[in-house]
Structures are given as structure tokens and as C-alpha cells.
Amino acid sequence: MTNHPASAVPIAQIRLALDDAPGEGQPHPAHDISAAARIGDTLFLGADECADLEVLDLVGEDFAAHRRIRLGEAFDLPGGPDEEMDIEGLAVDAGWLWVTGSHSLTRKKPKKSKPLDDHGLARLAHLKQRPNRMFLGRLPLIETSQGRWDVALAPLPDGRRPQMLPIGKHGSDLYKALKKHPLLGPFCALPAKENGLDVEGLVVDGDRVGLGLRGPVINGWALIVEAHIAPASETPDEADLALAGDLKLHVLDLAGLGVRDLKRRAADVLILAGPTMKLSGPARVYRWPGWTTPVPADLLHRPEAVIELPHGQGADHPEALAPVRHGGNEALLVVCDTPSPERLAGGAVVADVFGVEG
């Protein structure tokens, strides 16, 4: 039997003051944060049900000074600027903020106001591909004041500009490669949370892009898909990214869990692991050493479990990681999806801080 650490207790809590009202008809982002990335004193957040980024700056001991970035102002999104992108991964690397959607299908649901009858079952048979979910792109990071950062929505004098993998009628080249992959392809026809393809983590090192999969979990093992993504041309005005070469799979023994988020920590990767299906737990953080070093021939990795995270039942599901400092030491901010009422106050949501040793 695999030994796991005892359930951790947060060493602190941080208030994320998402005080601005969302757009009409959109849920408040405090209720469904699904991705996080920090640089300096700035925290970038992504949510499930929109195509926006939420940005906060460190103010005292909390993150506040909320502002919203509409990704439709930087990119020609195939589903339009208001269709949800299901942002599930954010990563900071070498002057860029990378963003990925889940690349997952959705299943039509029975109406909540009615009993499950034949018509409700028929609705379940309908699957939908939402093109904005196929998004993978990056935005130039710019330091606006000491320790505080923003992203550019237009080309900069240094030649950097917003870039994305083009998304056509059948998805991006990355999505087409996933569908053609002999192991992953069959799972592209299944919805998220039903062991279908579901990207829920992003880690970047130059042109190496790692996509952590919540699903599928195959043979009890989780998967990280590595792709090489680079500008399609050296021409400064070239706006698009391109997939170069074949996909590479990294197989991880996470005790049957899938990947819920990824974060670089020096040469290592911290993995937030959780259930693939719609379950509340368990949830834990693993350390995968040496991702930036040459990959050994063995594709199966057994990362070390370093934090057993508390979780609620039907609420408070650990969903996003961001490195922070607490008391002069490295720590890890954990943001929960479906927060319990105790975590919510106005437009703010409370996130937990855990110590990370080693």
C-alpha cells in the first residue's frame, strides 16, 4: 500500500478580493477559479465559465486591486469573446503568460426542474465541442511597477505580441494530434469528468509545453502530454504559434488520481492531483523532480506525495496552485473550486497557504 502524508493544516489563509461584478449572465469568478499563476506581487487567475483573466496585486497580506482582462480583445476566439473557454491552466515562463483551455467535450444535461425520463436520457446522448476550449496561447508580460505585472493585448516594441495556436473547424493542430494519438484518441470522444480528454494543468520551459490531464487516467496512471510549441515564423509580425514534432507522453503513478494543476518549482514540477470523476477527494500535491533535465528512457514516473490536502464534500475542491512566500519561506497557495459559504465574503474568496519542504 502506498503511504501518503497526513492531512495538512494550512499555515495561513489569503483573501482574494475579486470585487468587480462579472459580465451579464456570467457567474462570479470567485465561485469557479480553476487556474492560477503568480509573478512578483501579481496573481493571475482563470475561471471555468468565461474567457477572461482575473488579475490581483498583493496589498498587505491579501491579493486585491482587482482588474479583468478580456482575452477576446487580444485573440480572435473562434466561439466569440463571450463563449466560455474553460481556462484550466496558467503558466509564467520567460516573459510570457501561457493560457490553456480544457480541450474537453461537454454533455447536455437533463433539466433540473424535471424528473429523469426518456427525454432527459436523450439529452445526455448529445455531446458538444466548444471551440474556445481548444485554446492554447500566450501573452507578453510587462512590469508596470516594481513587483507588479500586467499582460499586453497588442504588439510591443520588443516584437512580442499575443500568440495562439490557430483553431479551425476541427480544432487546433494540437487537438488534431491528440485525436490521432493511438492511446489518447479514443478518449477525445468522451466528455470531461467521464475519463474523457480534459486538460487541467500547464507547465512551460521554453518551447516545451506540458499539459496535465485530469482524464484520461489509464491503467490507474495519470498523463502529462508534452508538446513543442513555438512561433510559426521568425517574422516579427507573425502572430500564430505552431505545433512542432510529435507529442510525448509522461506517465505518472498518482495512486489513481488525475492531474488538476501543474507548477514549476526550479527544475521540478509540483502536481496537484485529484479525482477524474465528479468526486470530492482525495486531493494531494506531488513533487516530480527534474522536469527541465533530460528525460530518462523510462516514461513511468513515481512522484513523491508531499502534501495531503483537506477537502470538503460537495465543496472546497482544491483546483489551482500558485507559489507564494510566507514568513520568508517558500509556500504554496491552494485555491478551491466550488468554495463553501465560509470561504466567500462579497466578491472575495479565501485561499489556503501550505508549507512546502525541500
Results as ranks from 00 to 15, higher is better:
293 T>C: 01
313 Q>N: 10
301 H>V: 03
300 L>A: 09
317 H>D: 08
317 H>Q: 14
283 A>Y: 15
299 L>F: 10
318 P>M: 14
292 T>L: 06
301 H>G: 07
281 G>C: 13
297 A>Q: 15
288 W>G: 01
305 A>P: 05
318 P>F: 11
288 W>P: 00
297 A>Y: 02
289 P>Y: 09
283 A>N: 14
301 H>F: 13
289 P>G: 07
313 Q>S: 06
292 T>A: 13
284 R>F: 03
302 R>P: 00
299 L>P: 08
291 W>H: 11
306 V>F: 05
282 P>S: 12
298 D>T: 06
303 P>M: 15
310 P>T: 03
325 R>S: 12
324 V>D: 04
310 P>A: 01
284 R>V: 01
286 Y>E: 13
321 L>C: 03
311 H>I: 00
286 Y>V: 04
282 P>A: 11
326 H>L: 07
324 V>E: 12
305 A>T: 01
299 L>S: 14
314 G>P: 08
310 P>C: 02
308 E>I: 00
292 T>K: 15
301 H>Q: 14
286 Y>C: 07
287 R>M: 03
301 H>Y: 09
294 P>W: 13
289 P>C: 04
327 G>Y: 06
321 L>Q: 09
323 P>S: 15
292 T>G: 04
296 P>I: 05
295 V>D: 15
322 A>H: 05
309 L>T: 03
321 L>P: 01
285 V>R: 06
280 S>K: 12
317 H>I: 04
322 A>P: 01
322 A>G: 04
298 D>K: 14
292 T>Q: 09
281 G>R: 10
291 W>F: 14
290 G>T: 00
292 T>P: 00
301 H>I: 05
288 W>Q: 09
309 L>F: 01
292 T>C: 05
306 V>M: 12
281 G>I: 05
284 R>Y: 03
287 R>T: 01
285 V>C: 08
300 L>C: 08
309 L>E: 05
312 G>R: 06
314 G>N: 10
322 A>R: 05
312 G>T: 09
300 L>D: 05
301 H>A: 13
295 V>T: 10
280 S>T: 13
310 P>D: 07
283 A>W: 09
297 A>R: 10
283 A>V: 03
318 P>K: 15
303 P>I: 08
295 V>C: 14
324 V>W: 13
311 H>D: 00
321 L>S: 03
284 R>A: 05
321 L>N: 05
280 S>I: 10
315 A>V: 13
308 E>H: 04
325 R>T: 11
324 V>A: 03
